[in-house]
Structures are given as structure tokens and as C-alpha cells.
Design a binder for these strands. Structure first.
Lengths: 221, 221
DNA sequence: TCAATAGTGTCTGTTAGACATTATGGA
DNA sequence: TCCATAATGTCTAACAGACACTATTGA
């Protein structure tokens, strides 16, 4: 069927892209390279591992390694290109609230305040990365990795609300948290402005005996 | 840092691999190319889309398009290879129970009856593909795509049990199913051996108003 | 003192899981 | 008739969500 030389047709450039998320000014944000238009950090695959390349991109853009990272999706960059398509492996990463952006990088809020702040391809990558984080949120305690080692339960709940994109019920949230034995209180308290000071907690997961989740049929329309 | 010529180092072969699952003899099975050792169908990426290549592989191996397919993961094939690593994009596909294998292909049970039936890399790909299907099972009605258009509820439950790898409670399963309005009964009944005949159903999803799932903290040990 | 936030106790509706019962076929 | 399987009704324990209340700080 194909008349193009096979040896060229099987060649494909492979790019690693990372959507590194954090919380900036109380909003979810993603790291981009500065420019007229922000662009997600990316690099051609060298001879290392995929995740290693993504981690290096985060380190270059923030000065630190991600506290959590996962592969999100692989997107064909331009199918139909003569000589073979090109693909981008998108990683979703996370760094703690307050992590700065290195020279040549900046944080932009998610979702972007105005359309066009990112190229369509990058906007799609960010969307998928956030979806990846959200989907894993109840199996993998990603939210903790967006916080410093010590945090209040209200702060933790705010991170969950940012990632899920909806408000949560305070009492229910804390009950579920207590049942999962993921955090433990420490002796310190933090007072922020007016009200009662909040007790600080630290991430201290304990193994749980296998709690099987029920089967649910939730067809998303 | 690198002294290797950049233009070669950025080159990478990209391979599409598909783990096509079905139900064979009451067990979960995956399609492989025949040989001393089975190998997952794979192809270098041409100039088409990633999913298109995966669909073509299923069509070549079964004579039909998959009833469901999703991207599962991308695996670096051999990091450290001089001249750039190579990566494999793994797709998880599904065809209905009873779909045959084309010339040069066969079905092998999952998990494999004996270790070594698949190369380590392929075994890992199958594991991830099944995990992808399992993870989506409650958001996306994948199980129906492993069945013919008409099926009994017991058959449907058996598919769910195969995919989840555990037994389900019959009454609870049917209650959840009824609540989701995913199936509708048809006028036919099917008698299998002894007991009471089962009513046949057909996949007929109706949109549900947004039922938000609660936040759960399930740390897998 | 009031305002604001942290943290907790109680109630209620929902539902998963267990169990029992009825229904309907084949042997 | 007995047995096997389908299908459904009822009960209970667990729990999400709602609400109210107490606790503790700053203004």
C-alpha cells in the first residue's frame, strides 16, 4: 500500500512534555517557559528514561525535583507528516505550594484566564494532566505533594477542592481523612488572622487493610 | 554534558503496541502473534494517528475493529541505547467474547498460565492495559464491549468479575446497574442447561444527571 | 463584646452487602 | 419430584451530607 521508503516512515521524533502543577495565590497553576505565548517545558527524548527526562524538566524550571510525577498521555503531534508522525509524551508533575519559577519560566493559572495563553496542543496537554491528577486523587494521595511538610487540614481541603474543581464538606472530609489514617497531628498550631488557630498536621500514611470499593456505574455525559 | 551529536540523540523509534483483550473460555485473554513465544501485535508509527495504528493492529489480528480502545501507557523500550531511546505506546483494546484470531495470531489467557509465555516487556504492557480497563470500568462502560449486543445480566456480571479480578454481589450489582440505567431488557429469554431462563438485555445507556462521587482516601499498600 | 475560623457531635437519607424468598425452567 | 439458576424483597451496618454547636483566637 505504501510507496514511501519504510525505513524513513518508521522514524519518529519523540518529545517529552511536562505539565507541572502547583498552587499559586490560591489557584491551581502550571509551569510554562516564558515568551509571548507560554509553552510547556519539553525536550526531545535522549537516551534516558521518559520519567527521568520529565523530572529534569521540572528541576530546570523550578530548581527542585517534582514531589510527585506520573505519565499522563501520549499525543501524536502531527499525523500525516511525510516521513512519520511525531509524538509527545505528556507527564503530570506536582511541586509544593510556594515553589518558585526559574529564570525563563513562570506560573500561569489553570484554567488559563484568557484563551490563547497557551498553544492548543499545550492547553490539551494541561487538561489531560489535570485530569490524570484528579483521577488518581482517591487512590494516590497526590494532594499532599502540593503542600509543605506541615499544613492545616483546611489547607489540605483547599488543595483537594482545587484539584477536584468543587467544594467539599468539611466534616465529611475530615471523617474520611481520619478513616484513612493518612495524616497525624503535630504539636504546633498556626494562627492566621482572626479565628481559632489551626492544628498543624503532617503526612503520615499507614497501611490499610484492603478496602475494596464498590462497583459504580457513572456514565459521564 | 552530552558529547554525542544532538541530531542523532533526538531520534527515537516509536512503536505502537496493542493489548487486545477478550473473554475466551470464561477467562480473560489477550491477543498475541503466534510464535515460540507469543508477542503483542506492534508496528512502527507511520504517518497516521496513534489510535489508528492500534485499531489497524486489532483488525489485522481478529478481522474486526475493536469495540473499545484506549491509550494505556508509553514505555521506554531501551533507555541508554546510544543514538536515543525507543518507546512503545501501549493501547488497551477490547473485542466481544467469541471473536476469533486471524492467521498467525492466537489468544492466551491472562494472567499467563506459566511465566515466560510473554516477554517481560509485553507482560508489563498487558498488566498496564488490564489496569487501564479496570480503572475506567466505573466511569466508562467498557464491560459491555466484551459482550455481544444481547446478553444476560449474569454474563455481564461475569465480565465485570473477570476485569475486576474479584467476585461481586449479585443483588448489589443489579441495583447499581438499575440505578445507572445502562441496560434495558428485551423480550427474549435464554435457557442455559438447568435453572430458570435469564432475560436478555441490551446496552442502552441513558444520560444521568451529574452524580458526584464522594472523596475517598484509599491508599493502596 | 463581636467576628471569624477551627473542630466536633448528632441526625438523616442512601446504599452496599447479607440473607431469605419466590419464580421458572430442566432432569 | 428435586435441583439449579434467575430475580427480587428485606434487613443492617456504614457513611456522606446537613446542621448545629462548642472552642479559641483577633479586633
Amino acid at each position: 500500500m505504501r510507496t514511501r521508503p519504510a525505513v524513513r516512515a518508521t522514524r519518529a521524533d519523540l518529545v517529552i512534555t511536562v505539565a507541572c502543577c502547583s498552587v499559586v495565590d490560591g489557584r491551581l497553576a502550571v509551569l510554562v517557559r516564558s515568551g509571548a505565548r507560554g509553552a510547556l517545558p519539553n525536550t526531545p527524548l535522549g537516551d534516558g528514561s521518559l520519567g527521568g527526562a520529565a523530572t529534569a524538566l521540572v528541576r530546570a524550571g523550578t530548581g527542585r525535583a517534582p514531589t510527585w510525577i506520573a505519565q499522563s498521555a501520549t499525543i501524536a503531534e502531527n499525523p500525516g507528516r511525510p516521513g512519520g508522525a511525531m509524538a509527545s509524551v505528556v507527564y503530570a508533575g506536582v511541586v509544593p505550594r510556594g515553589t518558585g519559577a526559574s529564570e525563563g519560566h513562570r506560573w500561569i493559572p489553570v484554567p488559563a484566564p484568557l484563551p490563547g495563553a497557551l498553544a492548543a496542543r499545550d492547553a490539551q496537554a494541561v487538561e489531560r494532566a489535570v485530569a490524570t491528577i484528579r483521577d488518581r486523587l482517591d487512590l494516590d494521595p497526590v494532594a499532599f505533594h502540593l503542600l509543605p511538610p506541615e499544613f492545616t487540614l483546611t489547607e489540605l481541603q483547599e488543595v483537594y477542592e482545587l484539584l477536584l474543581g468543587r467544594r467539599l464538606h468539611k466534616a465529611s472530609f475530615r471523617r474520611a481523612l481520619a478513616g484513612a489514617t493518612l495524616v497525624e497531628p503535630i504539636r504546633d498550631w498556626r494562627s492566621e488572622g482572626r479565628g481559632r488557630p489551626a492544628q498543624l498536621h503532617r503526612f503520615a500514611p499507614r497501611r490499610r487493610r484492603g478496602v475494596r470499593r464498590p462497583v459504580r456505574f457513572e456514565l459521564i455525559g
